Structure formats: C-alpha cells, structure tokens
Simulated assay, not measured.
Amino acid sequence: MSASTLSLLLERAEAERDAAAQALHAANAQAQAARAQHGELSGYRQEYQQRWTEQFARATAMDIVACYQSFGQRLNQAVDTQGHVAQHADQREERARDALRQAEMRVAALRQLIKRREAEAKAAADRREQRIADEFAARAHLHRSLHAHA
C-alpha cells in the first residue's frame, strides 16, 4: 500500500472513530436519562404506596381501594417498562463503547503501520545513500591509485 492510501485509510478510520465517540456520547446521555426517569418513577411509586398505606390505616371506602389498586398496577407497569427501557439503553451504550474501542484500535493499528512503512522507507533511503557514498569513495580511491602510479 502506498503512503497516500494508508493516509486515506487513517483519515477514514479517524472519522469512524469520531463518529463512534459521538454515538457513545449520545447513547450515554440516553442511558442516563432512562435511568433517571426510572428512578423518578420508582420514587413516585414509593411515595404513592406510602401515602396510601397511611390512608389505609384510616377507614377507606372500597371504591377508593379499587382506584388505588388500579393505579398502583399501572404505576408498577410503568416502572417495569421504564426499567426495561433503561436496561436496553445501557446495552446500547455498551455496544457503542465497544464500537468506539474497536475504532480506536483500528486507528492505532493504521498509525503503527504508517510508522513502520516510514521507518522502512527511511532505512531503504539510508542504504541507497550509503551505497552511493561507498561507490563514490571506491571510485575516488581508484582514481587516486591510477594517478599515483602514473
């Protein structure tokens, strides 16, 4: 692969890494929001249950008890549903984190390859330069030897 091809690959890998970082940031924000909403619903449910426990300590009509139970069931369903939403958001965040980690590894591998290729090119150039210098020195020595004998 040529240096320009590797450079292009690195550019693309860095863009993919940046996109993965943005996706992780968004997934993190969604997961935090889902967990917060789950916490708020759970807190509300706890307050609701506490309030009605106190109400039941006093005499309460059966129709109010039925309303409490109905709303309590819907509230439990909402808390459970939001718990699942938060769990899925956490899973999406973890997948986004893995994608970012893989993208960072690709960028690092390409940078390492580019460094290795640059080092190889420099070593080849150094060998060519040394060979030219050696040939020049050998010719100069031969030239001096011929003129010394003449």
Rank of each mutant, 00 (worst) to 15 (best):
M1E: 04
M1Y: 00
S2V: 00
A3W: 06
T5Q: 11
S7M: 05
L9T: 10
E11T: 15
R12L: 10
R12P: 01
A15I: 05
E16R: 14
R17V: 02
A19E: 15
A19M: 09
A19G: 00
A21C: 03
A23I: 01
H25G: 10
H25I: 02
A26N: 06
A26K: 08
A29L: 09
Q30C: 05
A31Y: 03
Q32I: 00
Q32D: 13
A33T: 05
A34E: 04
A34K: 04
R35Y: 03
A36S: 13
Q37G: 04
Q37L: 15
S42V: 03
S42Q: 11
G43D: 12
G43R: 08
G43Y: 01
Y44D: 05
R45I: 00
Q46T: 12
E47N: 08
Y48Q: 06
Q50D: 14
R51M: 13
R51H: 13
T53Q: 15
Q55K: 15
A57E: 13
R58N: 09
T60I: 15
M62R: 14
D63R: 11
V65W: 09
V65T: 06
V65Q: 12
A66Y: 04
Y68C: 01
S70F: 05
F71V: 01
G72T: 03
R74V: 02
L75F: 07
L75N: 05
N76I: 02
N76L: 12
N76P: 02
N76H: 07
N76R: 11
Q77T: 15
A78P: 00
A78K: 10
V79E: 08
T81V: 08
T81Y: 10
V85M: 04
A89Q: 05
D90W: 01
Q91A: 14
Q91L: 10
E93A: 07
E93L: 07
E94H: 10
E94P: 00
R97Y: 03
R97I: 01
Q102F: 02
Q102E: 11
E104Q: 15
M105R: 11
R106Y: 03
R106I: 03
V107Q: 04
V107A: 06
V107G: 02
V107Y: 02
A108G: 03
L110S: 05
L113G: 00
L113D: 07
R116Y: 01
E120R: 08
E120N: 10
K122D: 15
A123S: 10
A123G: 02
A124K: 12
A124S: 12
D126A: 15
D126L: 09
R127G: 02
R127M: 08
R127P: 01
R128Y: 04
R128P: 03
E129Q: 13
Q130F: 07
Q130M: 09
I132A: 13
I132P: 00
D134H: 11
F136M: 10
A138E: 15
H141R: 14
H143T: 04
R144F: 09
L146T: 05
